[in-house]
Amino acid sequence: KKVIATKVLGTVKWFNVRNGYGFINRNDTKEDVFVHQTAIKKNNPRKYLRSVGDGETVEFDVVEGEKGAEAANVTGPGGVPVQGSKYAADR
């Protein structure tokens, strides 16, 4: 997939743990970017499923997906693991 931007910061608008996807609002352009659970590179080690939490600040790359921009290599700011959704089960 073609990389559009790297190391972008954004805020998770919403993320559905059961369906495994959601949207991140970019801090720079204010665009909403699709995020799939497979794009989460550093999950919270205490969580079973990969997820990001609503309102969480994340860092990610933006790539060209089939339906427009989507997030890739999602981590917390500075490459730390994401916090994850409060609806995702703990280990």
Rank of each mutant, 00 (worst) to 15 (best):
K1S: 05
K1T: 05
K2T: 06
K2I: 12
V3F: 15
V3C: 08
A5D: 15
A5S: 15
T6G: 14
K7C: 09
V8C: 12
V8L: 09
T11W: 04
V12H: 00
V12M: 03
W14R: 02
W14N: 03
W14D: 03
F15M: 02
N16P: 00
N16V: 01
R18M: 14
N19T: 12
N19M: 15
G20V: 01
Y21C: 03
F23L: 03
I24S: 00
I24A: 03
N25I: 13
N25C: 15
N25E: 14
N27G: 11
N27Y: 13
T29C: 07
T29K: 05
K30L: 14
K30V: 05
E31L: 10
D32I: 04
V33D: 01
F34N: 01
V35T: 04
H36D: 03
H36L: 03
Q37L: 13
T38S: 13
T38V: 08
A39P: 00
I40S: 00
K41L: 14
K42E: 15
N43C: 12
N44A: 08
N44I: 05
L49Q: 06
R50A: 08
S51H: 07
S51Q: 05
V52G: 02
V52T: 03
G53S: 12
G53C: 15
G53D: 13
G55C: 11
G55Y: 07
E56A: 06
T57G: 06
T57A: 12
T57M: 15
V58G: 00
V58C: 10
E59K: 03
F60L: 07
F60Y: 03
D61A: 06
V62K: 00
V62Y: 03
V62S: 01
E66S: 15
G68F: 04
A69S: 13
A69I: 14
E70Q: 15
E70T: 12
A71I: 01
N73T: 04
N73C: 08
N73D: 14
N73E: 12
N73H: 11
V74D: 01
V74C: 07
T75C: 15
G76K: 07
G76N: 06
P77T: 07
P77C: 07
P77N: 04
G78R: 10
G79F: 04
G79T: 05
V80Q: 12
Q83D: 09
K86V: 11
A88K: 10
A88P: 06
A89L: 12
